[in-house]
Simulated assay, not measured.
Amino acid sequence: MSDSDSVLSWLQGWYTEQCDGDWEHEWGVKIATLDNPGWTIRIDLEGTSVEECEYPKQTITRGPNDWIFARVVDHQFDGACGPGNLTELLTMFRSWADEH
Rank of each mutant, 00 (worst) to 15 (best):
M1D: 03
M1P: 11
S2P: 10
D5R: 03
S6D: 08
S6W: 00
S9Y: 09
L11A: 06
Q12L: 08
Q12C: 05
G13H: 08
G13T: 09
G13L: 13
T16L: 08
E17F: 05
Q18D: 00
Q18Y: 00
C19H: 04
G21M: 14
G21C: 07
D22T: 10
D22P: 00
D22G: 06
W23L: 04
W23H: 05
W27T: 06
W27P: 00
W27G: 04
V29Y: 10
V29C: 07
K30I: 07
K30H: 10
I31L: 10
I31W: 13
A32V: 10
A32F: 02
L34N: 02
L34R: 13
L34Y: 07
N36R: 09
N36A: 13
N36F: 03
N36S: 05
P37S: 15
P37W: 15
T40R: 15
T40N: 13
T40E: 14
T40D: 05
L45D: 03
E46N: 08
G47C: 09
G47Q: 05
T48N: 04
E52Y: 06
E52Q: 12
E52V: 01
E52C: 09
E54D: 10
Y55N: 08
P56A: 08
P56K: 12
P56F: 00
Q58E: 12
Q58V: 08
Q58M: 15
T59V: 13
T61A: 07
R62P: 10
G63P: 05
P64Q: 11
P64H: 07
P64W: 12
N65P: 02
A70C: 04
V72A: 06
V72D: 08
V73P: 01
V73L: 12
H75W: 13
H75K: 13
H75T: 15
H75P: 00
Q76R: 08
Q76A: 11
F77W: 12
D78A: 04
D78P: 00
G79K: 02
A80K: 07
A80L: 09
C81Y: 03
P83V: 14
G84Q: 12
L86S: 03
T87K: 15
E88K: 08
E88F: 01
L89R: 02
L90W: 01
L90K: 15
T91F: 02
M92S: 04
M92N: 01
F93A: 09
F93C: 11
R94G: 01
S95T: 13
S95G: 15
W96V: 08
D98V: 11
E99F: 00
H100F: 15
H100V: 12
